[in-house]
Design a protein around this nucleic acid. Structure first.
Lengths: 130, 130
DNA sequence: CTATTTGTTCTATAACTAATAGAGCAAAGG
DNA sequence: CCTTTGCTCTATTAGTTATAGAACAAATAG
């Protein structure tokens, strides 16, 4: 598990961490039951404060993507996107797709990019088959 | 042009304004040459400070979506998404799509939602035909 | 030409967020 | 028992968000 975090980015570190972990889950690199590194370990790897990692993990926990146990650490859980999540997510995707269209990217190219990204998740080596 | 801005949202007002205007451009409700309200006017409409509107307009100008002229005000411009923009946008859409997949939304449903959103832009009454 | 409208710039302030830091508590497991 | 690990508390520094007021600059309308 290599998480690519840019300490110079304008995007907050805790958010980048959350995003990268979500992407790893989406790609199947992390599956139900996978363990995440301990907050202090991950913080040491990136040379950042463990409170920052803690915040990222807490966001993922609030969203139901991971479970946090003492001693065991952070473990990926099975999730079911509920209706409020879907509504919120659709609103966010509407804004992001609108940006591309407004900037002059053709509709079919936007859709193809989405398809390409989704395919890239599928083609990652996943190990969820029993 | 009705912009739906939620003053109670955790999303910054200037960002909501920027997002709604981008969505209006994507939907064709605003086309090349369309005028946006004056900063002070729009601020008065929402009961917010004109500096907040200014910031939203400034973001849109930096992105090349509008032109700002003294006296004439803000005018929508034709834009061409360059390669850096597309790379950045693809990275952002990857994160957002990953979130839905990680939350357990099926791939085909994610793609259908994207298609639905893109269609909703297309079906808005546009007036760009000469 | 004059006056007004509109964007632009400057300083300032209060409230909040991001990130760091250190200390210590609580529980789960070897 | 004791180590590991999440969790909580307080604190500080730096940056962001939103508000506010004042003044300047240019382009248009009359």
């Amino acid at each position: 598990m290599i998480l690519n975090v840019d300490l110079e980015s304008e995007v907050p570190i805790y958010q980048q961490l959350r995003d990268r972990i979500m992407e790893a889950i989406a790609a199947g690199l992390l599956v139900e039951g996978s363990s995440l590194p301990a907050t202090r370990t991950l913080a040491a790897d990136f040379g950042i404060n463990f409170h920052t990692v803690n915040k990222a993990y807490d966001l993922l926990r609030q969203q139901g993507l991971i479970r946090l146990n003492r001693k065991t650490g952070a473990v990926v859980t099975a999730t079911s996107a509920d209706s409020p999540f879907r509504a919120d997510w659709t609103a966010r995707v509407r804004t992001l797709l609108a940006e591309a269209i407004a900037m002059g990217v053709p509709v079919d190219e936007v859709l193809k990019t989405c398809q390409f990204v989704l395919d890239s998740f599928g083609t990652a080596q996943r190990e969820d088959a029993p």
